[in-house]
Computed example of a mutant assay.
Amino acid sequence: MSAHTPSTSPAVRAPRADGQSTRQSIIEAAGQLFAERGYAETTSKEICARARTNIAAVNYHFGGRDGLYLHLLREVHQHMMGREALARLAQADLPPEEKLSRFLAALVHGIIDDTGWHTRLWAREVLSPSPLLNQILREESLPKFQSLSQILAELTGLPVGDPALTRCVLSVVAPCLLLLVVGREVETPVQSLYAQPAASLHAHLLSFALAGLAAVGVKQGKSAAENPG
C-alpha cells in the first residue's frame, strides 16, 4: 500500500509533556500554598489537591515535600537574579557602576513587579524559617554575597573580606530586603512604593548606594594614604 502511515511520535512524546505539565502544576500550587501558610502548615496532600494530581506525584517529581520546597526556594532566587547570573555579572567587562545598576534593577523589578508567590514565599521563609533555610543560604545567598562583594570592592577599593565591605553589601541590599519582608499587602509607610514604577525605585536606590559607596571609597583612600605599606 502506498498510503502514508501517520507518525506515532506525538504519542511517544505525550507522556513527557504530561509529566512536565504535572510538575509545573505542582510547583505553582505549592508556591501559592507555601506562600499563604508557610512550610510547617502545608502538606503534600493539600498541594496535590490544588494541583489536581495524585499525591505520589510530589515524591516522583521532587523526592518529597522537602525536595519540592527546596526547588521553590531556588526558583525564588532565580526569579530575582540567580547566583550564576550574578557571578557572570561580577566578572563581566563592565564598569562597576553598571554592574551594580544591573544587579539592583533585577532585584527591584523582581520585587515590585512580582504578582505571584515568589516574594511572598521568601518573606514568609525569612520571618518563619524552615529547617531548610540554612541549606538554601549556603547554596544561593552566600555565593551571591561573594559576587556582590566583588562588585563593591571595585567601587570602593576595599579588599574582599574586609568587614567594611560587608557593611557596604548590607547597606546596598537592606532596602530591598525590607521590601521583601514587609510586602505589598501590609499597611506600612513603605506600602506606597509598590504603586510606583520599579524604574523609579531602582534609580533612587542606585544613586543612594553609589553616593554612599563613593564616600566609603574616599575614606578608604585617605586611610591608605595615611598608613602606607
Rank of each mutant, 00 (worst) to 15 (best):
M1S: 05
S2P: 11
A3T: 04
P6H: 01
P10D: 05
V12F: 08
A14F: 04
P15Q: 05
R16Y: 06
R16T: 05
A17L: 08
D18A: 13
D18S: 09
Q24T: 09
S25Q: 11
E28G: 07
A30E: 00
A35H: 10
E36I: 01
G38P: 00
G38K: 01
G38R: 04
G38V: 07
Y39Q: 03
Y39N: 08
A40R: 07
T42V: 09
T42M: 10
T42F: 06
S44V: 04
I47S: 05
C48G: 11
A49G: 12
R52I: 08
A56L: 14
A56F: 15
V58D: 08
F62N: 10
G64M: 15
G64A: 14
G67H: 06
G67I: 04
L68V: 09
Y69V: 06
R74E: 08
M80T: 07
M80Q: 06
G82V: 12
E84M: 09
E84N: 06
E84K: 05
R88C: 02
R88G: 02
R88K: 10
L89E: 02
A90V: 00
D93C: 03
P95S: 04
E97G: 06
L100I: 01
L104T: 00
L107Q: 12
L107I: 12
H109V: 08
I112M: 13
D113Y: 14
D113Q: 15
W117Q: 02
L121N: 06
A123H: 13
A123M: 09
L127Q: 04
L127A: 03
L132D: 01
L133R: 00
Q135F: 12
Q135N: 09
I136F: 11
R138A: 08
R138I: 04
E140C: 00
S141I: 12
L142I: 12
P143Y: 02
Q146L: 09
S147W: 02
Q150T: 04
Q150N: 04
I151M: 13
A153P: 06
E154H: 03
L155F: 08
T156C: 10
T156L: 09
G157Q: 09
G157M: 09
L158R: 08
G161A: 13
A164L: 14
L165A: 07
L165F: 15
T166E: 14
R167A: 14
R167Y: 07
S171Y: 01
P175C: 03
L177T: 02
L179F: 09
L180K: 01
L180H: 01
L180E: 03
L180S: 01
V182S: 07
V182H: 07
R184E: 08
E185N: 10
V186T: 09
E187L: 13
T188S: 15
T188A: 15
P189Y: 13
P189L: 12
V190K: 01
V190W: 00
V190R: 00
Q191L: 12
L193G: 10
Y194H: 04
A195Y: 07
A195K: 13
Q196L: 13
P197V: 11
A198M: 12
A199E: 15
L201M: 14
L205T: 15
L206I: 01
L210H: 07
L210R: 10
A211G: 07
L213T: 05
A214G: 15
V216A: 10
V216L: 03
V218E: 04
K219Q: 14
K219T: 12
K219P: 05
Q220K: 11
G221D: 15
K222V: 12
K222I: 11
K222L: 14
S223D: 14
A225K: 15
E226T: 13
